[in-house]
Every structure is written in C-alpha cells, then in structure tokens.
Design a binder for these strands. Structure first.
Lengths: 196, 196
DNA sequence: CGCGACGTTGATTTGCCTCAACGATTGTGG
DNA sequence: CCACAATCGTTGAGGCAAATCAACGTCGCG
C-alpha cells in the first residue's frame, strides 16, 4: 500500500510529527476493489471512511422504483463515505461502488475516534474537510434550485472535468437529477450551436 | 447578552473548563437586528459567523434576474454564515437577513482562529457541526434530484416544522426552488384530498 | 459471435413556469 | 387612526421544459 497521496493531502492542512505519522499509518488499511464491486450496501451500518488512492467510486441512493440518484463521485485524492450512517451508526441510505478498478485506503470509525484522541490535530484536519464538503454541497443546492438543467450540466463539466473523464453520461444525469435522454438532447443542441 | 443557549449547545458536544468558558464568552459579541435588516451583503467579505439566540435569519442568493434562491434558514439555536466567503476570504455570494427581529451572538474569523489555538476542543465542536451541516446538505441534494416538488414540500414541512411556523410561503418556495404559485396549487390539491 | 448496457433520436404526455388578475393582509405616511 | 400602497397568497389560462416510452445503432464483454 502507498500512503503518499493521502499523507500529502493531510499535510496541506496540518503538520504531523514522524511519530504521529507512523501511528496514523498503522491505523490505515488498504483494499482493492474492482469495477462494479461494492464497499457499502443500503441498510448496512457504514463504519468506515474511504480515501481513493486511484480509481473512481460513486455513492448513490436506490429508490423503491429502482431509479438511482447519485450523491457524489470520488476520484483520486477524495474521501467518501455515508457520513450520516457513519456518525449516527444508523443503517446506510446509500450504496457505494467502484465504477472502475480502484485502490482505496480505509479507516474504521473506532480507529478514527482513537486517532482524534491520540493526535488531536486530526480534529482540525477533518474540521477543514467537512467544512469544505459542506460548502460544496451548499453550492450544489444553490445550483439545483437556481439554474436550468442545461446550465447545471455545463457548470458541472466545467467544475469537475476530471470526473467527466471517468464517468458515464448516465451517471452524470443521475447526479444532476435528469434523464439520460434529456442530457443527450442538451448536448446535441449545443454541439449544433458551436458548429454554426 | 445571554450566552446560555449557545453554551448549552456547545456542551452537547464538548466540555469546557470554567476558564475556557470565560475566555470563549469574552470573544463573543452580541447584536440585535430588526426585521429585514441585513448582516451580510453579496460582494462583501463575510468575516463573522452568527448564532441565533432568538428570531430567524435567512441566507439567499440574488440572481441577475432579481430572483432569490434561499440557501438556508437559521432559527433559534442555529449557526449561520456564508462559509465559502468566510473560509476563503472571498466576496460573499449570499445575502443574510433577519426575517423577524432577532438576537444574535457573533464571533469574528480572527477571534475564531485564536479560539481554535487557545481552546483546541473547539476544533472538535466545529468538526461535529460542519459534519452535521454536510450531512444535511447532502440529504437536501438527494431530495432535490430524487423527489417531485410535491414530495419535497411535504418532506420539508415534516422535517422543519419550526421553520414553517416562522417563514412565509414565498420563502419556502424559494428554498425548494419552485414558484410560490405552484406551491399554492400543490397545497390546495392536497387539502382537497384530505377532506374527501 | 451474441447479449446487454449505453447513447441517441423522435412522439407524446406531464409538471411546472409565466403572466395576469383578484382579495386579504401588512405596513406606512398623513 | 385612517387611507393608501405594497406585499402576499390564491386562482386560472396558456406555454415551455423535461419526463416517459419506444425504437435503433454501437460498443464492450462474456
């Protein structure tokens, strides 16, 4: 396992002594998941947070009708979990799956609580992470209630080009809350405009 | 000024020595705002976070077209700020206004950073707060992309009855991202259903 | 090779918006 | 304290955006 990416992510926000770094690494576990493999299923309690070292994961909600609503994508250098289930120890609403072969670092809830105690600067690290996640989601809500589908689509591909590379049109539609068919016509319309 | 509500909120998550508590209180400022008064205007840098001791505030985005998109409401016992502007020290996208006469406790960015240093358990407090805020916004995004307007309306009034008491229909529509007219017809339709 | 998922296109339907008009309520200046 | 203006919620007519359903070509995969 390779913790360099994760460590350099952490060091953007806090500094660790070499002892602390060592302790942290001893708490991390490594796992590889292949495309379409699941790391969390709706109904189970999510007791792990995942850091994507390589590959791409997606978290989504499966409605009774069988439709999927994508909550988030996680590419290289992103954390992902069902934070609701994780913090409240309630059954997960979300599924989390790899949408390509991926290498993942993981830390359990129990070990994270210990980590907070032994290395309090991780409180700061996750305080910053959650604040940023909150800001992102707030901006997403703003987009959802303010802009048309078309505008939201182009704002998305501008904001997350690295995700667009990795993820099918269908999943982007599911993230935006529209049908794949409609996304297709939006693209076509704008292609014509560009050419003329 | 009365800090009891805020202190009891904090003590749900962390414990403070009496010295720490005293220091914290010395950093807090008190302000009263009357209905329609603004505490933040789009374009200004937001360097304060606000805790609502009594009353109700709302944060919203004003589009070029003059439409307003409500990002959040803050009632008694809630924090509110433009966190994007606050953490990045960039011009605020949001306006924050009192929608009824309100009593507010405030702490500036500078003082908050000091507080983190002097009383590190506040890292934990805000870590938990931001995590919860993140979860809430994620669930909101899920609602936005998964459910119809009608379903979202009833989920909202069920989830936030205390907000519904305080806030006009127009603002709820603006929070849900629909027109007040349409919300009106949704209500009417369901009133008829209940009666029959 | 053949099956199944994906992206595309078109016809039809539906949800929601726009605009306009109206009473009811709130707020405000004389 | 009243008269007037302004805002809010409601209702209806008409239009547009997006969903649904169905059909088809393409590609990756077993």
């Amino acid at each position: 396992m390779n913790v360099n990416l994760l460590l350099s992510n952490i060091k953007k926000h806090i500094t660790l002594s070499s002892l602390e770094e060592q302790y942290f690494c001893s708490q991390i576990t490594y796992l590889q998941v292949s495309k379409n493999e699941s790391v969390l299923q709706q109904g189970n309690i999510c007791n792990t947070i995942y850091f994507v070292d390589s590959g791409t994961l997606s978290a989504f909600y499966r409605t009774k009708g069988g439709k999927e609503s994508t909550i988030m994508f996680a590419i290289r250098d992103w954390w992902i979990t069902d934070l609701y289930s994780f913090t409240n120890e309630k059954p997960a609403m979300l599924d989390i799956e790899a949408i390509e072969d991926s290498s993942i670092l993981a830390i359990s809830n129990v070990k994270l609580q210990l980590l907070y105690q032994k290395v309090p600067s991780f409180e700061k690290y996750f305080r910053i992470l959650f604040a940023n996640a909150y800001i992102r989601e707030q901006l997403r809500a703003l987009d959802n209630i303010t802009f048309t589908t078309e505008e939201r689509y182009f704002r998305f591909i501008e904001k997350y080009p690295q995700i667009v590379e990795k993820v099918s049109q269908k999943r982007i539609a599911s993230y935006l809350g529209v049908t794949p068919e409609f996304l297709s016509t939006v693209k076509k319309k704008n292609k014509r405009l560009k050419l003329s």
